[in-house]
Design a protein around this nucleic acid. Structure first.
Lengths: 218, 218
DNA sequence: AGCTTAAGTTAGGCTAGTCTAATAAAAAGG
DNA sequence: CCTTTTTATTAGACTAGCCTAACTTAAGCT
């Protein structure tokens, strides 16, 4: 069992792995908000534990074991977020920090029970997939709204970033997961989009926002 | 904000405070399962933080501030236990260890929400009182069943010890909080009691067990 | 009261996780 | 391809928590 700190490093590595192909010490240090020597020191320990493959001056790689540990923590995080929203009435913008702490609780039973009570959900409140008990997670191939053409109809399925700021912005715009969006117009100058969706017929969203909305074209 | 470790020391001090009048370094070291030098070192830090009053070779004392911090953690612990039992279907013998971890989660909202969902309970699943948000807790003056006379009718209200072993034993005997107990007979030789209660007319409980059952005479 | 035992304290050392400063290797760019 | 810049590593130090061994103070018992 890795310590709580090590679990956080593994989680960060897991996420970096899904973006870049080559994870550098610097990437991880930025993601963990610690100095590079700290990361250097830590990856050596993570290697001794068999969670990471590390060779001097080479990119970092998660081992299968490390990837599984990370996925199971993400599972606990996302189940917790879903539980907080669905069973305890929290808003989707309030749950991240709480889940960040509860994800380290050592109790299979607790999370299995949440899973059961939630009816074995496949995604968390932000649309991110929940890994199964063996650490596998299927990532639906949603596209960014910003990549869709004018006239497209698409359902909002997930967010590429669940920062409090974005979530509060979407709350204000009354944009929710599952809603059907229709791209009415794309402004050629700045790629901002005019979107229609329930209760909002012509809302303008900037490129920056559309980049973070993952949709399923219908 | 004390660290998680310090919170555990304060909690232990709080409980010791309710038993002995003079808390010694040795008491705390036994309760925390660490060496006396470790405790010695820690109480100095707890003093700098203003949670404990400490003078060399003198008994340890919690300050008002320390007592409040401890009570609030106990509040979080007991609300969590209650939530796990009432809202998530756990058995009263399963919840201690999980609550031991969740009690350190830093979110007033989480515990307030539990409190609300539970209807502001006054006791946890083992009958222990739940401190209020300002750290105050009223302890009902239940008596030990072992202190009652033959013929007494009393309601089981709380346990003086919630070890897994006792809880599993009580499960086996189908003894639950709130049940009306009637002392049919007390064996003079070993003080074991013959008790009647729902579905069990003549169960013998040893002195050791009766010492841990807190009742309200009716 | 004086000696013995128990309890508390100090000293010094260990791991986990962090840092800064200095150095070494790799990558980038003329 | 050689120099500069960026990135990675090493060295050494610090805090939080823990330990054992040695020593000191307090308590307990003739």
């Amino acid at each position: 069992m890795p310590t709580q700190t090590k679990e956080n490093y593994l989680k960060a590595l897991f996420f970096l792995d899904h973006k870049h192909d080559n994870i550098t010490v610097t990437d991880l240090s930025k993601s963990m908000q610690v100095s590079t020597p700290t990361v250097n020191n830590m990856v050596k320990k993570l290697q001794s534990g068999g969670w990471v493959k590390y060779e001097k001056y080479k990119p970092l790689k998660l081992t299968a074991k490390g990837r599984k540990v990370a996925a199971l923590i993400i599972r606990k995080h996302r189940l917790t977020e879903m539980f907080l929203v669905e069973k305890m009435g929290f808003g989707w913008e309030e749950v991240h920090d709480i889940a960040e702490e509860i994800e380290h609780v050592n109790s299979e039973q607790l999370f299995d029970r949440m899973d059961e009570m939630l009816g074995f959900p496949k995604a968390d409140p932000h649309g991110s997939p929940i890994p199964d008990k063996s650490g596998h997670m299927l990532e639906p191939d949603y596209i960014k709204l910003s990549a869709a053409k004018a006239g497209t109809k698409a359902r909002l399925r997930a967010l590429d970033d669940s920062s409090m700021e974005l979530l509060l912005y979407l709350n204000k715009k009354e944009l929710e997961l599952g809603m059907l969006l229709e791209i009415r117009e794309i402004e050629p100058y700045d790629q901002s989009m005019t979107i229609g969706y329930p209760k909002h017929n012509n809302t303008i969203l900037t490129r920056e926002v559309c980049d973070k909305l993952l949709v399923e074209v219908v």
